[in-house]
Nucleic acid binder design. Structure first.
Lengths: 191, 191
DNA sequence: ACAATTTCTTGCTTTATGTCAAGAAATGTT
DNA sequence: AACATTTCTTGACATAAAGCAAGAAATTGT
């Protein structure tokens, strides 16, 4: 048994009610991977083949808007799953980039490996579905917050739930994630 | 074979590459259902047990914000799947309501039935996952639009992609969906 | 350690959207 | 048909956030 994967096994067990043996089997299907700060896990126009458990580090997804500006659409904290749903599950070219904000370590599954597990192991089916549901829920919550919270409230919420992000990510990434300009974010910070 | 389910079978076949026989088997697991205009498929605080193919009609999801106002978070057009992901898949009380805007007809699966199919039929696994992925993609796109489009652009986009909504839904539902007030929407319409 | 680059702050001005309120139009009910 | 209710429009005013620009501070590369 690989020592490094204990965090992943715990993550799986905390996600879905399966046995430790099943969780360890799933863990062992993943392969270790790492990224240096600034490295890309995925570049736009490429096809994603990475379904990642991020053990340590911080990552972000960003897209380019019509004027060529980067818009950060998601931050990924450690002890969570990282994947670009559209490109990974549909095998199409990605419009999004995924980049390491800090040095990152984690574990990886390819689409082929994931599919094999998905059809063979009922425990993995439940896990995979739970991960999809969780990410979908997070996206819906984000939508809702954009509508019924002010920029300042969104800022405060992010600050209190994910202070790590403020420690490592530049303001412009955070600002575009919050849907405001970096000038506005700078002013919010002063308060 | 039930005549009414041909649209659902076609929908399944257009979603995922499986055989007609498999699609028809899946179709036959669903039970017909209908709702009158204004009826609720789901009320907040209840637990959703409905995974619906909406064959005909128009529905919406809404939540209440802190001031008690209704915020429409989604419209469902005909020939699509309708479900409240959080409550349905996690078996928790819903914060959202799902309401029929027009008379609706469709086909239903309970969570128990869905799970049985999910673990028994690989064709259904692929379908179920594709539906989750599609809904998740739509949510991400919506997030992105809220950040990098003006209210007017979002209005025009909705108008051109889903004119049915404007035919049946009152302005205040559409306005809250777009993240603006009904006054602002009224002014946008004038143009 | 220095220069180059990027990030952050701040002031001024403009614009989009919200708030409140009132009346008109449409819709539903008996 | 008459009334009640809801929906839609419009005006006057307030405000949050954007746009632009310049300088200060921090970070990075050599």
């Amino acid at each position: 048994m690989k020592l490094e994967s204990a965090l992943l096994t715990n993550f799986i067990l905390s996600t879905v009610p399966i046995s430790s043996i099943e969780a360890r089997e799933i863990t062992n299907s993943f392969q270790p991977m790492k990224l240096k700060k600034g490295d890309f896990l995925l570049r736009e126009t490429h096809i994603s083949d990475d379904y990642i458990y991020l053990e340590k580090g911080l990552m972000r997804t960003f897209v380019h808007d019509l004027d060529g500006n980067e818009i950060t659409t998601d931050f990924f904290l450690e002890n969570s799953m990282v994947f670009e749903v559209t490109s990974f599950f549909n095998g199409v070219r990605s419009e999004a980039n995924i980049q390491a904000i800090t040095h990152c370590t984690g574990f990886r599954l390819s689409y082929q490996e994931l599919n094999k597990l998905f059809h063979q192991k009922s425990a993995f089916r439940d896990f995979g579905r739970a991960i999809l549901v969780k990410a979908f829920m997070a996206s819906k919550k984000r939508n809702y917050r954009m509508i019924n919270r002010t920029a300042e409230q969104r800022y405060r919420e992010l600050l209190s739930t994910s202070p790590q992000i403020f420690h490592y990510a530049p303001l412009k990434h955070i600002a575009s994630y919050l849907g405001i300009t970096d000038s506005t974010l700078s002013r919010l910070r002063r308060k």
